[in-house]
């Protein structure tokens, strides 16, 4: 039994054909598998190792290098607040503090209902629209604590 959906597995198989080596599509494969599974579980690692023709050790070496990849489950909505310089200059620290208070969790924490997780992240490429955050892959920019509350409420109601 493969841990990911058949569609995803098929997508991997097809996409891998575009590369001259079996392991090349590894990093996107890990990210897409994680999107579907929530995190890179042991089963996911085993599956992807087989897919990429690598040892599980090698797959773990790669996972641990990339900051978006995780072997630990996150919340359904992963709130990533950028506090890098451009965001910092425009109040990102207060924003991150606010998120902590609001969600009742710290950096890399997960709410007890597993709906939200929080992470202080490095530059996400929203420097001219700072401060900014990403919830999963969605960008939210020019944020204030008030706007952040609206954003969180909106996700909560999904």
């Amino acid at each position: 039994m493969i841990p990911v959906s058949e569609q995803l597995d098929h997508f991997f198989t097809e996409k891998m054909k575009e590369y001259p080596t079996q392991r090349s599509f590894l990093v996107p494969m890990l990210l897409y598998a994680q999107d579907e599974l929530g995190c890179l579980s042991n089963q996911a690692v085993e599956y992807i190792a087989g897919k990429a023709g690598l040892s599980q050790l090698e797959v773990r070496n790669v996972i641990s290098y990339y900051s978006m990849l995780t072997t630990k489950p996150r919340g359904r909505f992963h709130v990533q607040v950028c506090t890098n310089i451009c965001c910092q200059l425009r109040g990102a620290e207060d924003l991150f503090e606010h998120c902590k208070q609001r969600l009742g969790i710290g950096h890399k924490g997960v709410t007890s209902d597993e709906q939200f997780s929080l992470e202080e992240v490095e530059c996400i490429g929203a420097c001219s629209w700072a401060p900014a955050a990403q919830v999963n892959y969605d960008f939210h920019e020019n944020l204030t604590p008030e706007k952040m509350d609206q954003v969180l409420d909106e996700y909560r109601s999904r």
Partner: peptide, 17 residues
């Protein structure tokens, strides 16, 4: 190939298979 390098930066570590 039983040893690998994991994490990055100052958290880098040699890891067993």
């Amino acid at each position: 190939w039983a040893l690998g390098v994991q994490n990055r930066g100052s958290a880098s570590i040699i890891a067993p298979n």
